[in-house]
Amino acid sequence: MALCEAEKTFVLHGVEENFRIDGREREDYRPMELETNIISHAFGSARLRLANTDVLVAVKIEVDVPYPERPREGKLEFFVDCSANATPDFEGRGGEDLAIEISNSLAAAYRSPEVFDPSKLCILKGRKCWKIFIDILLLECGGNLYDAVSIAVKAALWDIRIPLVKSVTVDGNNIDMDVSEELHNCQKLDVTGAPVMVTVCKIGEQCIVDPNVAEELCSVGAVVIAVSQDKFSTVLQKGSGSLHPQTLLECLQMGLSVARRLNEALLETLQQIKPSMNQDVGFLK
């Protein structure tokens, strides 16, 4: 997508007047559609559509061995796939660098035990643990990928169902686990403190959140911060361009304020979702 100078000026003036080209104010998000439990063979799943940005997340679990330096913790691994149909920029290997950046940012955001407690995934200290694979598929790109991905990941982890381990028997190097096969006999993860990412862009002399593609092209600088429910940023990543220290502080203040409201709205929505285990739901039904 390319913008002429007149289009860029139109976007700039709209931001200055706090009336963006789609009618939003500077701190407003575009409409979102969220679905959970939409992939039957996954342990947890979610799909988020943020205007023209579409993200699908599926979670799978397997038994693994803890890291030697962290014997009481489980493992969390992120994998991002940029579909070639999402945007022409992803054709060939065009989306690989972006996929690595997003997965690394998510790993850094979830690294702190204050936002996600990996000890809940430990089965037997130093011997067995749960390893969670979070597969993220970018179906369509309409701007603000980091925010959309982080929201979808948190929703998928909220939906996750971990099999209940009834007992563990150790006989030398052999470890036998009695895992419940009942679908409803499972554990849920507490992800209320899991972070969401907020992208703050500077256009002209003002900062905005949830930029669309046109606004991203007009941005002179951007930062991405990850904020948990009641904590400040767990990861900070600078996007393109450069920012004055005072501008960076303003971006952080806006991002923190918006992230707290976003977290509250997301948790309220997730608590209202009660999918039926015997009914097909979602767009993959």
Results as ranks from 00 to 15, higher is better:
residue 1 M to L: 13
residue 1 M to A: 11
residue 3 L to S: 08
residue 11 V to N: 05
residue 11 V to L: 14
residue 11 V to I: 15
residue 14 G to F: 09
residue 14 G to T: 12
residue 19 F to D: 11
residue 21 I to R: 11
residue 22 D to Y: 06
residue 22 D to S: 08
residue 22 D to G: 10
residue 24 R to W: 05
residue 24 R to L: 07
residue 25 E to P: 02
residue 27 E to S: 15
residue 28 D to V: 06
residue 29 Y to P: 02
residue 33 E to S: 15
residue 33 E to G: 12
residue 35 E to C: 06
residue 35 E to K: 06
residue 37 N to H: 14
residue 38 I to E: 02
residue 45 S to P: 05
residue 46 A to E: 08
residue 48 L to K: 02
residue 50 L to A: 13
residue 50 L to D: 12
residue 51 A to M: 07
residue 53 T to K: 01
residue 56 L to E: 02
residue 57 V to W: 00
residue 63 V to Q: 12
residue 66 P to W: 09
residue 70 R to W: 08
residue 73 E to P: 06
residue 74 G to Y: 08
residue 76 L to Q: 03
residue 80 V to K: 00
residue 80 V to T: 02
residue 83 S to E: 10
residue 83 S to Q: 08
residue 87 T to H: 14
residue 87 T to P: 04
residue 91 E to P: 03
residue 95 G to Y: 12
residue 96 E to V: 14
residue 97 D to G: 06
residue 102 I to W: 01
residue 105 S to I: 00
residue 107 A to L: 11
residue 109 A to E: 02
residue 115 V to R: 04
residue 116 F to V: 01
residue 120 K to V: 12
residue 120 K to T: 12
residue 120 K to I: 09
residue 121 L to N: 05
residue 124 L to I: 04
residue 124 L to S: 13
residue 128 K to R: 15
residue 129 C to P: 09
residue 132 I to Q: 00
residue 138 L to P: 02
residue 138 L to W: 00
residue 144 N to W: 04
residue 145 L to K: 04
residue 147 D to A: 03
residue 148 A to I: 02
residue 149 V to N: 00
residue 150 S to D: 01
residue 153 V to P: 01
residue 156 A to V: 03
residue 157 L to A: 03
residue 158 W to T: 00
residue 158 W to Q: 01
residue 160 I to N: 00
residue 161 R to Q: 14
residue 166 K to H: 14
residue 168 V to I: 15
residue 169 T to C: 11
residue 176 D to A: 15
residue 177 M to W: 07
residue 180 S to Y: 11
residue 181 E to G: 13
residue 182 E to C: 10
residue 184 H to Y: 08
residue 185 N to P: 03
residue 189 L to S: 07
residue 190 D to M: 08
residue 195 P to I: 04
residue 196 V to S: 03
residue 201 C to R: 04
residue 203 I to Q: 04
residue 204 G to K: 10
residue 206 Q to P: 00
residue 206 Q to F: 09
residue 208 I to G: 02
residue 210 D to I: 04
residue 212 N to I: 09
residue 212 N to K: 10
residue 216 E to F: 06
residue 218 C to W: 09
residue 220 V to H: 10
residue 221 G to P: 05
residue 221 G to F: 08
residue 225 I to K: 01
residue 226 A to N: 05
residue 229 Q to G: 05
residue 230 D to C: 09
residue 231 K to I: 05
residue 232 F to A: 13
residue 237 Q to W: 01
residue 238 K to H: 11
residue 242 S to H: 11
residue 249 L to H: 14
residue 252 L to D: 03
residue 252 L to S: 03
residue 253 Q to K: 11
residue 253 Q to H: 10
residue 254 M to T: 12
residue 257 S to A: 15
residue 259 A to I: 04
residue 260 R to T: 06
residue 262 L to Q: 13
residue 266 L to F: 05
residue 266 L to S: 05
residue 269 T to F: 02
residue 270 L to P: 01
residue 274 K to N: 15
residue 276 S to N: 15
residue 277 M to N: 10
residue 283 F to Q: 12
residue 283 F to C: 11
residue 285 K to R: 14
residue 285 K to F: 04
